[in-house]
């Protein structure tokens, strides 16, 4: 018997900061062959991997997206799949068995965990008894007079800060109508933290690394720092347990009026700011790969306090090496 061949890892969403972060982390492992996929041929992460390992895929919402991704994983003998795209994740996780059948492990939390995270109302209900959670109601069923203003309204489902805004009084809240897909949430007045959290196969939290987002540009943290704060770490651990986390999630907390860390939401995927957590000592993409491969993880991984400022980087290549658009072309 020989040494096992390199682990073949496919990272989707190679154009996003999370995809690039995962690719950069795993590129340091000598036992990994990286493949990258995106729907956009100009996605920069495609060009961080070898020619021939770059794949254009359908948009995550396309009807045949999962079929074609499973087919790609089979043909390319993908051992582990990392999806860094919000809209893809639940669709792929729902087909985890099909991936298992062809020998591809999905490095993502369970479908049940994803669903409770992606439904912010279900998440607030799930966590209300175990940690400080701001009052959260559905717009259509709550009495506008029962709130202290201002309040936050946001889509029940959805990623990032899309559709989130502040409402200053009951009249303004009433004017929004009765849409049950909109949440009303008490405004948390304090500082906000993102806690990158990794739990092992038993749900035991191996690391919870709080980060403050010192500056954010277009939803992406461009300056930040890790914060050693027991309360933030413990709160994220309780969230991870409440949602049955196995793998990596980004737990967003904000201090309430009493200064306690309270739950805002959970993004059940790798955040774009992951390189800071990696540099601070917790290489979560690498640990998540070991988890997906069924290898044992350390009981806990410590981190240091570290700040980061970020900048754009360039990948230069022969124009001919930019992937062709998947459209009809005539022979030259």
């Amino acid at each position: 018997m020989s040494d096992p061949s390199p682990v073949r890892v496919l990272v989707t969403g190679a154009g996003g900061p999370a995809g690039v972060a995962v690719l950069r982390s795993l590129a340091r492992r000598p036992d990994v062959t990286l493949l990258a996929a995106d729907m956009d041929r100009y996605a920069s992460g495609l060009y961080l991997v070898d020619e021939g390992a770059r794949f254009l895929v359908e948009p995550g919402l396309a009807d045949t997206f999962v079929d074609s991704l499973v087919a790609l994983c089979e043909r390319e003998r993908v051992d582990v799949l990392f999806s860094t795209v919000d809209v893809e994740l639940p669709r792929i996780a729902a087909e985890r068995k099909r991936l298992d059948a062809i020998g591809t492990a999905l490095a993502a939390p369970s479908l049940e965990t994803l669903e409770v995270c992606l439904d912010k109302f279900a998440l607030a209900r799930r966590c209300a008894d175990v940690l400080p959670t701001p009052r959260t109601e559905l717009l259509g069923t709550t009495d506008p007079e029962s709130w202290d203003y201002p309040v936050i309204v946001k889509p029940r489902r959805g990623a990032g800060s899309r559709g989130v805004h502040q409402v200053d009084d009951a009249d303004a809240l009433r004017a929004l109508g009765a849409d049950e897909d909109i949440l009303v949430q008490a405004l948390l007045p304090g500082d906000e933290y993102s806690v990158d959290t990794l739990a092992d196969a038993d749900g035991h939290v191996v690391a919870a690394v709080p980060r403050s987002r010192l500056r954010v540009d277009s939803g992406v943290s461009v300056a930040g720092c890790t914060v050693a704060d027991r309360e933030l770490e413990q709160t994220a651990r309780r969230v991870a347990e409440a949602i049955g986390l196995v793998g990596v999630a980004n737990v967003q907390l904000r201090r309430d009026a009493e200064g306690r860390a309270a739950l805002l939401e959970v993004n059940p995927r790798f955040p774009g700011a992951m390189p800071l957590t990696v540099a601070a000592g917790v290489d979560m993409p690498s640990l998540a790969l070991d988890l997906a491969l069924g290898r044992p993880l350390p009981d806990s991984v410590p981190f240091t306090e570290l700040a980061v400022v970020r900048y754009l980087e360039d990948v230069f290549l022969d124009p001919a090496d930019v992937l062709d658009a998947p459209s009809d072309e005539v022979a030259r």
């Binding site: 895929v57 359908e58 043909r75 390319e76 992937l323 998947p326 459209s327 009809d328 072309e329 030259r332």
Partner: peptide
């Protein structure tokens, strides 16, 4: 492109 993971047309491959 008849294979859903390939990006070039038969015509581009011929060229």
């Amino acid at each position: 492109t008849w294979s859903d993971d390939a990006v070039s047309t038969t015509c581009a491959n011929l060229a």
